[in-house]
Amino acid sequence: MLPWIVRRTRLPLLSLRCPGCRSESATAGEGRFRVNANGKLLDVWLLVRCASCDRTRKLTVHERAPVASFAAADLRGYRANDPDLVASTLLDPLLARRNRFTLDWTGAWRLHTPPERPDEAWPLRVRVALEDPVPVRPERLIARGLGLSRNEVRRRVKCDVPPRRPTSTGFTFTVPAGD
């Protein structure tokens, strides 16, 4: 079984209306947190910038949470603006729901395939792994990876998920020998 991997190349843009210029696109840039202490309670925000006017906006990560409820590693990560913590926070679906934004993955991922396809290993079985929850349509991903048209993919490829419905989890597919 051949491994294909979908990897994030950068953080996705956020579809979020800017209150200043009414643009629909924002970015987390290099990723910064703002932490505010009020007694034994903490507020944590992820700062994002409008892609058009550069205005900064805060996305609520934690609100009035007791300091004791945080893991020490998370507190250090928030204070140090840890890039891995920024990415995992931004990709959290609960944060998106609470702050009313969606992620725009256009141009933010790349498909990594083995350099050579074995000609004698038919039927060709491929396992696609997504390192981040990138929403991709299996049909388009397979067409790109194999260099086929989408009609050819529909006709020849057997996939374990609906090929026209976006998925953000891994899947497998089989390509029988050519006609």
Rank of each mutant, 00 (worst) to 15 (best):
G147V: 08
N38G: 05
V86M: 03
L46W: 04
D74C: 01
P163L: 15
C50W: 15
V161K: 14
V134M: 03
V161M: 09
W122H: 10
S52A: 14
R125C: 07
G39P: 07
P12A: 06
S69C: 05
W122M: 10
R17S: 01
P93K: 12
L16Q: 02
V44E: 07
D160H: 13
D92C: 11
D82W: 00
F101W: 00
R117E: 07
L46S: 03
D54E: 14
V175Q: 09
R156E: 12
L41V: 07
A143Q: 12
P176C: 14
G107V: 05
S168H: 07
A143T: 13
R98S: 15
L2G: 03
D104G: 04
E139C: 15
D160G: 12
R98N: 14
T106P: 03
P83Q: 01
E131G: 15
T172W: 08
L75M: 08
G107H: 04
R127Q: 10
R17H: 05
E139G: 12
P114F: 06
V86F: 04
P83E: 02
L90N: 09
E120K: 12
L111T: 08
T167N: 11
W45T: 00
E116W: 04
A65G: 02
R125H: 13
K158G: 08
R8T: 09
L14V: 07
P118M: 00
A177R: 12
S149T: 15
R100Y: 00
G20W: 14
L16F: 10
P176H: 13
L46N: 02
T9M: 04
T169A: 14
F173H: 05
P162T: 12
R98F: 12
R164K: 14
L124E: 09
W4M: 13
P12N: 08
T169M: 09
R155F: 12
V128N: 11
R100P: 00
N38P: 00
N36F: 04
R137A: 09
P83S: 02
L130H: 05
C18M: 08
R10W: 02
F70L: 05
F171G: 09
P138Q: 08
T172V: 15
L90W: 02
A108K: 05
